[in-house]
């Protein structure tokens, strides 16, 4: 119940932040978020910066250069857009760090179950992908040709698809044998 309340509050806060049209309230929001994050401030702050930086800086800097060349004020725009984006990403990361997402979406049994299954499979696949890449590197002495790379990519992606489909059948049998029916 608590997680669902937090989800509603999070969505409300996200919409409210997205409506801010100047940087002053966004600075106040950032201060509140930094205090709320406590000891995780550096970890969440660093990750938010990485997620925001690429798109945000590229777009806002290019637009700011345009405004600067036209002798128009640009600070308000740079601060407002970057702070809004940073606040929203920071809020999302804080929410995911503090609230059990699976419990938060438990208003739908189907969605909650699907989310748990999918995330666990994604994590398994991420590990398998890492192992696959390391195995290829350790077995490749010469730089592969483009055709060899295409052969590898086709077989690797199709292999992952095949593995996923086979595992889904095993998972289904395992779920059924444990009395789980959806």
């Amino acid at each position: 119940m608590k997680a669902k309340t937090y989800l509603i509050l999070y969505i409300g806060a996200l919409i409210a932040i997205s409506m801010c049209k100047s940087y002053e309230p966004l600075l106040a929001v950032l201060a509140v978020l930094l205090v709320m994050s406590g000891k995780s401030v550096l970890v969440i702050g660093r990750r938010s910066l990485i997620l925001v930086a690429l798109f945000s800086l590229f777009i806002t800097l290019s637009y700011s250069v345009m405004l600067y060349l036209q002798n128009q004020p640009f600070w308000n725009y740079v601060l407002t857009v970057n702070l809004r984006s940073f606040d929203m990403v920071f809020l999302t990361l804080l929410f995911t760090a503090r609230v059990n997402i699976y419990e938060a979406v438990a208003f739908s049994k189907d969605l909650s179950f699907l989310l748990v299954l999918s995330v666990s499979k994604i994590m398994t696949m991420q590990r398998a992908f890492g192992d696959y890449t390391d195995a290829l590197k350790s077995r490749t002495l010469k730089k592969p040709t483009r055709n060899q790379i295409y052969d590898y990519l086709g077989s690797a992606i199709a292999g992952f698809l095949d593995k996923n489909i086979r595992e889904s059948k095993e998972n289904f049998e395992a779920m059924k044998s444990r009395g789980f029916h959806v």
Binding site: L114, L117, S118, I122, F129, F160, L161, N164
Partner: peptide, 15 residues
């Protein structure tokens, strides 16, 4: 088999 299969395809589209 929908749930197991759906989660597998989702993991595939992530990968």
């Amino acid at each position: 088999e929908s749930f197991a299969f759906l989660s597998s395809l989702t993991a595939f589209s992530f990968v």
